[in-house]
Design a binder for these strands. Structure first.
Lengths: 217, 217
DNA sequence: TATTGGTGGATACACCGTACGGTAGCGCAC
DNA sequence: GTGCGCTACCGTACGGTGTATCCACCAATA
């Protein structure tokens, strides 16, 4: 089997899933494929294009669920698929919004959501549509990034309890005990029980309602 | 002048402003300071902590404007200051949401926005507050990241017109001319004239209205 | 058979973050 | 005054990265 962009992207994704984006290198991918490092450059211009390739593979899976008859169902499906993809491939959230997503599957997802939003009530002209797309993407990107970051710190606290207790824990508790951040302290202490998915849904509903109600012309 | 965390952070920020986060290295900072690379490790544990330091310096400037009597004024001021900071220091947007912001000034900003939101109508309990903070941060992070990314690609198209025309331009136009992405094409062609700041304001207003109207219990 | 073209590979370079060992200087005990 | 110990500083070195360049081999053609 002669090595292809798809194969390269697939093993790159596997390695990134396992060791994160920082632990991903062309040499490791090549070694995993039993090939010299330079062979990859026959299929990919540079590391950056490899990342774009990986991103578009993920978008392909998101695009699969982006066809519904009702506009709101489409938007919700894309949003949830994006969140699920980012939770499956945490490196994806590191790349979200950091570079333009111009791969064919990314464009397909963009088309699906834009087409759906264009049918939402309250979205009248192309300007409304542009703003709606912007707001929706912003909320998805921001929420997903935030959730992945939280999950990472929680995990690093779990697996490396000693390090957490020794470094961040005391610092943070000391900070909160200064009394200068009472609201943050309340949030940290009392607000840990919320379900992440429900929060995501809530934020999504908030912005969608804002788009459709559209009190500003 | 004996070298300090502040001096290191300041020159690091200057270098990152000039050459981006990828062009930033401990060695270059050290050389800029006329010092061996290892001297930095007397003031900073690793590169990651240096980034945290830089981030908190930026948050210090944001925190300056975070005191207003009216909750909505506070939120708007913080949001705009964050956007302005990201446009001044584009690397800041790369770090937004990618790691927990736990520096003292970041906590101060978080406290100010949380305290403000807790006084917004429609925010009743701690759960409401947590969700509101999440939604607001998500929209700010997402919108700012998106804007910075757009600005970068626009700039790279401007300065390196040849490369743009040769690589991305044809690819994108070819993609759009396939007719598979009609809505996206319409957005790209007709929707370029919107003012970025106005879009930001609009998205912000959308989510704030969503928070205050609060149609979901 | 001789030549040529292209494909896969190894080597090399510049740079990165950072671990480590040595050294030089200063303050203190006697 | 003299010796000692300790601390702060510094250069060097290691393992890793992305990527450019050159080289060897092998197939197919003249």
């Amino acid at each position: 089997m002669p090595l292809s962009r798809e194969k390269i992207a697939a093993t790159a994704i596997r390695l990134a899933d396992a060791h994160g984006l920082d632990g991903l290198s062309l040499r490791k991918i090549a070694k995993e494929l039993g090939v010299g490092p330079m062979r990859l450059y026959d299929y990919v211009i540079n590391r950056s294009e490899l990342l774009d390739l990986m991103v578009d593979v993920v978008y392909a899976r998101i695009a699969e669920v982006s066809q519904h008859s009702e506009w709101r169902a489409t938007v919700l499906a894309v949003a949830h698929a994006t969140r699920a993809a980012a939770l499956d491939h945490e490196w994806f959230s590191d790349l979200l919004g950091g570079r333009p997503h111009l791969g064919p599957h990314a464009l397909a997802v963009g088309e699906a959501t834009a087409a759906a939003l264009s049918q939402a009530p309250g979205v009248r002209g192309i300007d409304d549509l542009q703003r709606a797309v912007g707001a929706l993407n912003a909320v998805i990107i921001g929420a997903v990034r935030r959730e992945v970051t939280e999950r990472r710190t929680a995990r690093s606290a779990g697996t490396d309890e000693a390090a957490w207790q020794a470094s961040l824990g005391p610092y943070l508790t000391r900070m909160l005990e200064t009394g200068k951040y009472p609201t943050v302290a309340r949030l940290v202490i009392d607000g840990a029980h919320l379900d992440a998915e429900e929060t995501f849904n809530h934020n999504l509903a908030t912005v969608l309602d804002g788009i459709t109600s559209h009190p500003h012309t």
